[in-house]
Design a protein around this nucleic acid. Structure first.
Length: 483
RNA sequence: GGUGCGGUGGCGAAGAGGCUAACGCUGCGGACUGCAAAUCCGCCAUCCGUCGGUUCAAAUCCGACCCGCACCUCCA
């Protein structure tokens, strides 16, 4: 367990607070997951990556994290789309759950401890609603069950809205029969040809907010540490969850509420309703998944983040710089580069190690400050420079231990961000073949260079570049890598 | 109308009372190189939306104003 003080910005208080879990080294986290009627877009991906990073960091520090992320698989949009396609809603939902995993896995998002689905928690939902009715927080209306916001005095505390404001600005369809326009549905009366479940109030299905209250309670208890999601969930989704859960259980639902900012396109929120969204899998056709992840983490999670290809291109270059440093260090360790003592003044191995350890401290400090991944990445760049400088000056046998230590720190910290630094080269069988061919080509070119036939040498290099292979001539020999 | 967030170099982006305002990209100069690439070194904001105020000291606190964004309705 690394002893250190993590601070988290808590939407509930509007301030950064020291993170102290309810139960010493155990952390319970609930992240609102997608409604599964489409492939996920980049805006959906941000919370996945951000809160996965929160999890990774807490685990790195030694906490044991129970991470719950739901799938909303019962919903109007699912029903509509399924009808369009002429298949069952459940079938459509489960298809997009599979597709979700494909994208999330690519982005190195760790699987949750449990991924509960609404459709599998009907019993719990019904029981929960029953409890709310019994305690007098909910009321029945023509087969629907509604939560009465005026019956819960603290309603509005998360989003800092008063019930009166809600009434004043209400663009909500006013249903005269509701006690209050902001009352929201817990249980919806069934319509024909829709998924439906039996309940004490007749056939129907759950409203949107109730699922998270029920499932978080089932897996994490009435009170847990972190509840997270996109900023647009603060109201009404999370506000309503709080109302339901705290009304029923009488204890604070979550200790810390974390919300990520939006991805924008031309400064406008990326959203399904605006239609300006980019699917993760389409972006993956142009950029590797780790570049997307790097891009998402290079800005603080609460700030808006504008998207375009150019910005991903910058991220790609940045990540490549880190990977290059890692590669140079590995080569120095493997002795791929001949030992070379340079005239340059160089850091001793001792200084190198101490420098990296100090930077590791800075990394932790950055992450402690409300998950400042932008700063943490800056530290990674500092580490890269240390490594490059150290390695470029020439490495001897005595430096190997320091290099090993450096490699450990570097990859460990990158790993906290879910970034992999070692290039997964060619797959093994082909790799041997490719290596052999590359060695042959390089030898031929070297012969040309020895004869000062630079025209031939340059032609080979240019042709390889066009095929996606970069050659680098270094004092220690020729190196190649895919673009 | 209500609520909240933000405006930092050519671009992106940290910093939130006091070290020369991080880091990355771009550009420029240098080292290295046959030339490149990669790498290293150096340079590029007298200034942090505007105007006032508080303070010994402000990009960082307060006030006003301008601009942008978001939420108040499904949305990550």
């Amino acid at each position: 367990m690394i002893k250190t003080e993590v601070k988290i910005f808590n939407t509930a208080s509007g301030k950064k607070e020291v993170f102290i879990p309810l139960e010493n080294d155990q952390v319970g986290m609930y992240v609102c997951g997608p409604t599964t009627y489409n492939y996920i877009h980049l805006g959906n991906a941000r919370p996945l990556v951000v809160f996965d990073t929160v999890r990774r960091y807490l685990e790195y520090l030694g906490y044991e994290v129970t991470y719950i992320q739901n799938f909303t698989d019962v919903d109007d949009k699912i029903i509509n789309k399924a009808n369009e396609e002429g298949i069952k809603p459940a079938e459509l939902a489960s298809r997009y759950i599979d597709e979700y995993f494909r994208d999330a896995d690519a982005l190195q998002v760790k699987r949750a401890t449990v991924h509960p689905r609404v459709s599998e928690h009907m019993e719990g939902i019904i029981k929960f609603i029953k409890g709310l009715l019994e305690k007098g927080y909910a009321y029945e209306m023509e087969g629907d069950v509604l939560f009465g916001v005026t019956r819960f005095p603290e309603y509005g505390k998360l989003s800092k809205r008063s019930i009166d404001d809600l009434q004043a600005g209400a663009r909500v369809e006013v249903d005269e029969k509701k006690e209050h326009p902001a009352d929201f549905v817990l249980w919806k009366k069934a319509k024909p040809h829709e998924p439906q479940w039996p309940s004490p109030w007749g056939l129907g299905r759950p409203g949107w907010h109730i699922e998270c209250s029920v499932m978080s309670h089932e897996y994490l208890g009435p009170s847990f540490d972190i509840h997270a999601g996109g900023y647009d969930l603060v109201f009404p989704h999370h506000e309503n969850e709080i109302a339901q859960s705290e009304a029923l259980h009488g204890v604070p639902m979550a200790k810390y509420w974390m919300h990520n900012g939006f991805i924008t396109v031309n400064e406008e929120k990326m959203s399904k309703s605006l239609g300006n969204f980019f699917l993760v899998r389409d972006i993956l056709k142009k950029f590797p998944a780790d570049v997307i992840r790097f891009y998402l983490l290079a800005t603080h999670y609460r700030s808006p983040l504008d998207f375009d290809d150019e910005k991903l291109g910058v991220a790609q270059k940045g990540l490549a710089r880190l990977q290059t440093a890692y590669r140079l260090m590995e080569e120095a360790m493997n002795g791929t580069l001949a030992e070379h003592s340079s005239a340059a003044i160089r850091l001793g191995a001792q200084g190198f190690r101490q420098g990296l350890q100090a930077l590791q401290g800075k990394f932790i400090e950055a992450m402690n400050d409300d998950l400042n991944t932008a700063l943490a990445i800056a530290v990674l760049f500092d580490i890269a420079r240390e490594i490059n400088t150290f390695v470029a000056a020439g490495v001897t046998e005595q430096d190997q231990k320091a290099l090993l230590e450096g490699k450990r720190i570097f990859s460990e910290l990158a790993g906290v961000l879910g970034l992999q630094l070692d290039k997964k080269g060619c797959d093994n069988e082909n790799g041997v073949l490719v290596d052999a061919l590359m060695n042959l080509i390089i030898t031929i070119r070297q012969n040309a260079r020895t004869k000062k036939d630079f025209q031939t040498a340059d032609e080979i290099r240019e042709k390889l570049r066009q095929s996606g292979i970069i050659l680098e001539d270094t004092p220690q020999g020729v190196r190649w890598k895919p673009i």
